[in-house]
Design a protein around this nucleic acid. Structure first.
Lengths: 188, 188
DNA sequence: CGCGGGTTTGATGATGCTCAAGCCCGGTGG
DNA sequence: CCACCGGGCTTGAGCATCATCAAACCCGCG
């Protein structure tokens, strides 16, 4: 809970009372390693704020290969925004790479929450804009950098993640096969 | 101006008075084909809403190759959000592929605008979230589809754009060389 | 006319993938 | 405590996709 208030306070300041109200919209949940928060085809009915552990979202292509879209360690938000906002079947899976606890904000509560604390429109606007900035940047990287530099860029951006992630997951994130990443790292 | 009000009304409804105020924050501008709205290294000091014509944002890699990030035809918003929000040197160029007129929202007016019409926080939140959804989708495509299917996906998503864009620009958007796209389209 | 940008075509080559095998290592059950 | 199992990592040979470079073409425009 503390982590969440800290997260919000980066962009908007809430009174003590507003903080209480804000927190009341969230429920604490947890998952064990390898359990799913969301599967492709389901409707994404809320948003998770990770307080401890590690979630990950990924898509599966028609050949059965996974492509990691996002890692969500402590202090990160995650959902399938497409499914969540448009109420369409999800295109992503979300699962736990490690045992995880998170705060869950139900979609059906969101509009009400915005009505009660309009400042939160602002918070989530800024959140979306920051997220947008980093996705555009990732797109630039994937269009203009070779695999090795995409790897270096990932290491530079997520130095703590790189420590705890299996190589396989990193490979999937930067868009190469695990075999190729292995060769790349062991080449002279 | 009409197009802009129409755009806003998709997500929030403004009173007649609010509409007037909203529009007062914009100034009409225009560019000729090949002129720049923004260059790499400059600070992006506002946001453009295209009313007629075609803008484009792209990055240039260290080998001098262009990678198109976005096309902005009538009714689309465009800026370098990284530079705009963080006030850092832009990583993108924005130029006109065709003669263009657009409405310009100065960054320095934005906070004030949000204060006067808080509903606009909501509008720009939704705008950012929709944009985020489409960038995530583009990322999924670039990770999981071969060039041919990325091309088809582009055609399906932007049927009107494909008509008026030089092949070279489409190639740059989907992440292949113009030569390769040409061969792909002419292969049996 | 001729110039210049976009497109086409072909030969060659690099990057990264596929498939298959072997290895390492931590976990689990006997 | 040890044997086995499974998942991740490594390694290699062959291959597909897409890039590079160079030349020729087309066509609108000055």
């Amino acid at each position: 809970m503390e982590l969440l208030l800290q997260n919000v306070s980066k962009h908007v300041s809430l009174s003590h009372e507003e903080q209480e109200i804000f927190l009341s919209y969230f429920t604490e949940k947890s998952l064990k390693r390898k359990e799913y928060l969301l599967r492709e085809g389901e409707i994404c009915r809320g948003t998770a704020f990770v307080t401890k552990g590690l979630l990950r979202s990924y898509s599966v292509d028609k050949n059965g290969f996974e492509h990691v879209i996002q890692f969500a360690p402590d202090g990160w938000w995650i959902n399938d925004m497409y499914s969540h906002n448009y109420e369409k079947p999800a295109r992503l899976f979300i699962d736990a790479l490690e045992d995880v606890t998170f705060l869950w904000l139900q979609k059906s509560d969101r509009e009400n929450m915005y009505k009660v604390i309009p400042k939160l429109e602002r918070f989530f606007r800024i959140l979306a804009e920051n997220s947008l900035i980093s996705y555009k940047n990732r797109l630039i990287n994937s269009l203009s950098l070779p695999a090795k530099e995409r790897y270096q860029s990932f290491c530079a951006e997520y130095p703590t993640l790189i420590e705890c992630l299996p190589q396989k997951q990193v490979a999937s994130y930067i868009g190469v096969t695990p075999e190729f990443l292995s060769k790349m790292l062991n080449a002279t």
